[in-house]
Amino acid sequence: MKRRVWVVSEQKAGTLTQCLGVGQYFDPEPQQKIARRVPPLKRIFTPPLFRPDEKRPDIIVSCGFRSEEPVMRMKKAYGGHPFTVHLQRPKLNGFDLVFVSRHDWEPELDRRANYHSMVGVPHRVTMDRLAPLREAARRRYAPNGEQVAAIFVGGDNGAYAYDDAALRRITATVRTLAEEGWRVVLSISRRSSQRTLETLLALRGPAIEVWDREGENPYLDYLAAADAFLIAKDSITMPCEALTTGKPVYALDLTPIPGERLEKFEWFHRDLQQVLKLTRPFEGQLAAYSYTPLNETRRIAGIVAAAVAERD
């Protein structure tokens, strides 16, 4: 049954895609409400995030701490009717369902019936989106049937650094894979520094494709074409997206930055590798292995659908 959905997110692309991933299971075109940081002196000139005379949504999916207060105002304005789903541990109470990543879960949350754990984060990548792209992507990136290694990198994030040592490691890895017969497609993220971009662009060659951040992002085509993935450890979303394919997903080490943030990321990777047996550490080879493809977005949507139906 189609539902009217609003997604309320911070301005970060990764936060918005989590909300859209879940929201689009109920509404192909959910209305987007972006909660931006507005300086106090400019608030009087800033349009409100919503108007009470707008048609009431059935479900509100939100993520990010800036979205919490607006969602509570929306819920109150519509007499508590919208079913509210938050994709992060909130500071405020009042959400109907909350989903918290396993690496952020704490024992005290076991007592909250409306809280559920999730692996990593939800997203918009599905095999339904990738399957129609695979044939054309394979023709482009593996015209002679070569194996394709998709390498995804990000940027410094307080847990890991793309310093000289990290860039040397990535460079050596890309060259080795190409020498071993892999066709390498390498994606740079929005967080990647100019230095990282320039270092990796220098690797371009007949067997190595590097997106230069010009034109349309080929990320989905890379996902569709790949036979194996090597993903830098600073990302949580990208491994989750790659794991929908059922292809091998390896974690690429970077230079660690000691601290609480590093501990959380390392917990995430140990959980994927040692507990859930989904990914593996990269030790020089992209060997094949099997696992059940991960689709947390669909699982989360199923829990939401059941809860909404029960309330109806």
Rank of each mutant, 00 (worst) to 15 (best):
P28E: 06
E29G: 07
E29N: 15
P30T: 03
P30Y: 01
Q31C: 04
Q31H: 14
Q31Y: 08
Q31V: 14
Q31F: 15
Q32I: 15
Q32P: 00
K33F: 02
I34W: 08
A35P: 14
A35I: 12
R37T: 09
V38M: 04
P39S: 05
P40W: 13
P40H: 06
P40I: 11
L41A: 14
K42W: 11
K42I: 06
T46W: 09
T46M: 04
T46C: 12
P47L: 07
P47V: 04
P48M: 08
L49V: 09
R51T: 07
D53P: 02
D53I: 02
D53S: 15
D53N: 08
D53H: 14
E54K: 06
K55E: 13
R56S: 13
P57K: 04
D58G: 03
D58L: 02
D58A: 01
I59W: 00
I59D: 01
S62Q: 01
G64R: 09
F65W: 15
R66Y: 14
R66N: 12
S67G: 06
E68I: 10
P70R: 12
P70Y: 06
V71T: 08
R73L: 12
M74T: 13
K75C: 04
K75G: 03
A77F: 11
A77C: 14
A77W: 11
A77G: 04
A77L: 04
Y78M: 06
Y78H: 10
Y78S: 09
G79Y: 07
H81S: 10
H81Y: 12
H81F: 07
P82G: 14
P82H: 09
F83G: 09
T84W: 01
V85C: 05
H86R: 10
L87W: 08
Q88T: 08
Q88L: 10
Q88D: 14
P90D: 03
P90Y: 02
K91V: 11
L92I: 11
L92N: 07
L92Y: 11
L92F: 10
N93P: 01
G94T: 01
F95Q: 01
D96E: 09
L97V: 01
L97F: 02
V98L: 06
V98F: 05
V98K: 05
F99N: 07
F99A: 08
V100M: 13
V100T: 14
V100N: 11
S101A: 15
S101Q: 09
S101V: 04
R102W: 00
H103V: 06
D104V: 11
W105P: 07
W105A: 15
E106L: 12
E106D: 03
E106Y: 02
P107Q: 00
P107I: 00
P107L: 02
P107G: 00
E108I: 04
E108Q: 13
D110H: 14
R111V: 01
R111I: 00
R112E: 13
R112P: 02
A113F: 01
A113K: 15
N114M: 00
H116P: 00
H116D: 02
H116I: 00
S117W: 12
S117A: 14
M118V: 08
